[in-house]
Design a protein around this nucleic acid. Sequence first.
RNA 1: GGUGCCGUGGCCGAGUGGCGAGGCGCAGGACUGCAAAUCCUGUCACACCGGUUCGAUUCCGGUCGGCACCUCCA
Length: 469
Amino acid sequence: MQVFNSLGRESQTFTPRQEGKVAMYVCGPTVQAAPHIGHGRSAVAFDVIRRYLEWRGFDVTYVVNITDVEDKIIAAAAERGVSADVVATETAEQFRTAYRLLNVRPPDIEPKATDHIPEMITFIEELIASKHAYPAPNGDVYFAVRSYEPYGQLSGRKIDDLISGSRIEPGEDKRDPLDFALWKAAKPGEPHWDSPWGSGRPGWHIECSAMARKYLGHGFDFHGGGTDLAFPHHENEVAQAEAAYGAPFARYWLHNGMVNLSGEKMAKSTGLMVDLLESLVQYPPLAMRLFYLRTHYRRPVDFTVEAVEDAVKALERLWAFRRRFPGGPKQEALPDAMNRFQAFMDDDFDTAGALSVLFDLVREGNGRLDAGEPVGGWVAAYDEFIEVLGLSEPPVEVDDLSPALDKLAERFKIEPAGDPVATVERLVEVRTRARADKDFALSDAVRDELAVLGILVEDAAGGTRWHRQ
RNA sequence: GGUGCCGUGGCCGAGUGGCGAGGCGCAGGACUGCAAAUCCUGUCACACCGGUUCGAUUCCGGUCGGCACCUCCA
């Protein structure tokens, strides 16, 4: 399995730290504002990587943190007149909702920064003891960047190139403009915790280092996040961890590309944002997921209405195939398809290429079904791939249509079944009988009325099927 | 200014030193009571200019164009 490691900027063969196991840490959101479509892309990208590693037989420990103490959360809380904790909790819930809709599996561990203050304090103490950090007179603690010689290895920057861009903000007490805060002295009205350096709160970078270390130890396998985090956040994480222990922190760094809007960067600072939850209302959530997966995770992706609508149709094509073959597969997945799928995914998780295997399978499978040939191997392979990609069609859900279905049953003079799904099936039977009797007025009426409810009825060689739009 | 990425057919988007990924769209055809779904056929490209090579979209150099990071950000 080859992965593109940002650390070194090259494709490398993946070797796990411990045979059969993968320890993976992904930078989760700072819960300061509602999720946007960029968050969705990152979450989906790493969710698929996790699923694929499991599919390959690894026992994966998947950690995604929540940064719930930070300047912008504090600012948002002050603006609303509530505590930072309220903002963080509410926003975290929005993220969870969006991710659930996108079929992103919850992480094994989801640590919150505020639950790990003691670990961070310990970490900082160790850095001070090893002379890589120093407490400043103003109560802040800073990491001494120049004390860690390889600084810049991850982002490919040289310390001297960074100097021009660095500066000391008012109120900071750094010895060197490059240094960054590990601990920030408390300001009035802000959340704060006691520490050996007085009351304060942790800096952003130390949070991830401390939590990753706690749950995954040193030299864990994958560290993921958006490419925008590579510098300075990830660079600083590496510096802290490796300065403190002299041992590698994460072995493979994976960075997902950004989501652009019609070619422009999407960012709060530009005001160009697409709200994730809103777009998940506007489009089928799994179509959004497919939209993300059609581009390699490392490349930037351009969000356009056309591209998402394209994905809506492509997804329908996949699902339509699977509906032709109700029930579970009874056969082995096609070895050739399995090999091709794995070859793409083994090549730095090339979901776009892997999707082409899935679509090939669908075309061939449809052709075989049309010809009356067996397709068990095709369906079995489909099920494997669709699950790794997280694109399975959810079970039909018609409970909300129950009253409307009962009315239809009355209109077409049948007994409503207690279960709405069964009622639909009785209505479909009515239509089937009408067709057999060449009473097309009646059969079309049933189909049209069901269509009004969003239930589409299709006649196929093997019988009549229905699904909800 | 520094660092890095990219430029593929009507659109989106993989990939490869020589056998036209895939999806969407469009045009025909098959199937079908109609519809839907499906299948078949066609449309079939690699920004530009040089170089290496028997052969380059794929490697090298240059030109033009787009983007990202260098500051909080998935």
